[in-house]
Every structure is written in structure tokens, then in C-alpha cells.
């Protein structure tokens, strides 16, 4: 019961911050894999970019 009470008073910040981190990490990964044009990265992810519908080159 004590734990539940503590949970219920958690601020909206502690509820939404992890979601924000998740979203930023996800966006970072998608951009690194799908969009960055550095040639090593482009060549390594080339087939995936085409097959996943990202603009490739």
C-alpha cells in the first residue's frame, strides 16, 4: 500500500521524461540508420535503406 501511495504522487515529469528519452533514442537510431549520408554508414546500410523505403542516394 505504501508503495502504491508513493507511485500515485509521482510527478507528471517522472511519467513523461522516460517517454521523451525513448522517443529521442528512437529518432536518433532511425536517423543514423536511415538518413546519415556518411559513406561508410551509407554503404553498410544501403540495402536496408532501399528495402525499407528511405531515400538512399
Amino acid at each position: 500500500m505504501q508503495v502504491q501511495a508513493t507511485t500515485s504522487v509521482s510527478t507528471s515529469g517522472s511519467r513523461s521524461l522516460p517517454i521523451l528519452f525513448c522517443a529521442l533514442l528512437g529518432i536518433g537510431i532511425i536517423f543514423t540508420t536511415g538518413h546519415i549520408q556518411a559513406s561508410a554508414l551509407h554503404d553498410a546500410a544501403h540495402d536496408v535503406r532501399h528495402a525499407t523505403g528511405f531515400p538512399c542516394h
Partner: peptide, 27 residues
């Protein structure tokens, strides 16, 4: 080499999609 990299990057990009999806699901 080539297809191994493709498997790795596909898993990576879908993990990126999954992070956005799970974040939105939590919301």
C-alpha cells in the same frame, strides 16, 4: 558480410521504430 550488415541494420531501425511505438503506447 553484406547480408549480415543488412540484418544488423534492419534490427537496428526496427528497434528505433519500437522505441517510438512503446513510448507512444505508454503515453
Amino acid at each position: 558480410m553484406r547480408d549480415g550488415l543488412s540484418i544488423f541494420f534492419t534490427m537496428l531501425v526496427y528497434s528505433g521504430y519500437a522505441l517510438l511505438t512503446v513510448g507512444a503506447m505508454e503515453l
